[in-house]
Amino acid sequence: MTKYIVRRLLGIIPTLLVIITLSFFIVRVAPGGPFDTEKALPEVVKRNIEAKYHLDEPLVMQYGRYMFDVLRGDLGPSFRYKDWDVNFYIFQSLPNSIILGVIAISIAILFGITSGMLAAVKQNTWVDYLSMALAVVGISVPLFVIGPVLQYIFAMQLQWVPTSGWFTAGDSWKTIILPAITLAFADFATIARLTRSSMLDTLRSDYIRTAKAKGMRTSLIIFKHAMKGSMLPVVSYLGPAFAGIITGSVVVETVFRIPGLGKFFVQSSFNRDYTLIVGVVIVYSVILVFMNFIVDIIYSMLDPRITYK
């Protein structure tokens, strides 16, 4: 097992290298530099700035320097906002995004599994229909529609929660409700559908019939025999779910004006702030890759048939 974990951890390295390299070069070969403003800078000034950020060196040198810095955990200075490090921005905004993401994914998993299981067990009853209708909404309606609509109904018309703001900035804790629900919706829907279908599949399997033939009660069969097997597809969906949460947070943070990493990301994309873009992508990738790693480990612990060769 330990060997397996170590091997998987080593497997992460090339992926991360590819990500860093790819985003570094995409950004560098792009037309339009960060210092292209409306008014042209005098040549001397431009050269000075480029020298300061080492933009005058050959691309390979820049790449090597950047890689070295990244390995030390230094994502470099921001191109746009003078005197600030990318690290500073990321550490300032990342906690907000993590809080939002963790709450959202918890909501999605908790409600998704519960309603999926209920739907499967009470197949073809109103419980089933209701939770599947909700799931279809979650799958069909993009979150940038769900977000504003929820905002319009619950914040503007009913005034139950604030329209926007963020609790770390001194606003009410209620500010987190709508963003978290919005962000959770799509993953809730997929998890609910996955849970339902894999639960139904499991309930039809031979070993559940065996358990029934033993005279076990239905609730025991579901929790002891069916649960583990039917959770496997759900666990393997968690990787894409994390990716979805990260992508979704970009929109949700924009809609609800949350000072998180996603909002920064969009801004820096518009600003062509090279180092900030690459920095944010690296942080996101590290999170994503490690989440996938953890999901893999959980999966292999759930399924005894997997061997750690």
């Binding site: 985003s23 992508t247 970009v250 990301f265 994309s269």
Partner: peptide
């Protein structure tokens, strides 16, 4: 496999912003 590991939506956003 490697592309699956990428936060591809983010790369698309970068690509769109830049190109």
């Amino acid at each position: 496999d490697i592309m699956y590991g990428l936060p591809y939506m983010l790369l698309v956003i970068i690509a769109m912003a830049i190109f």
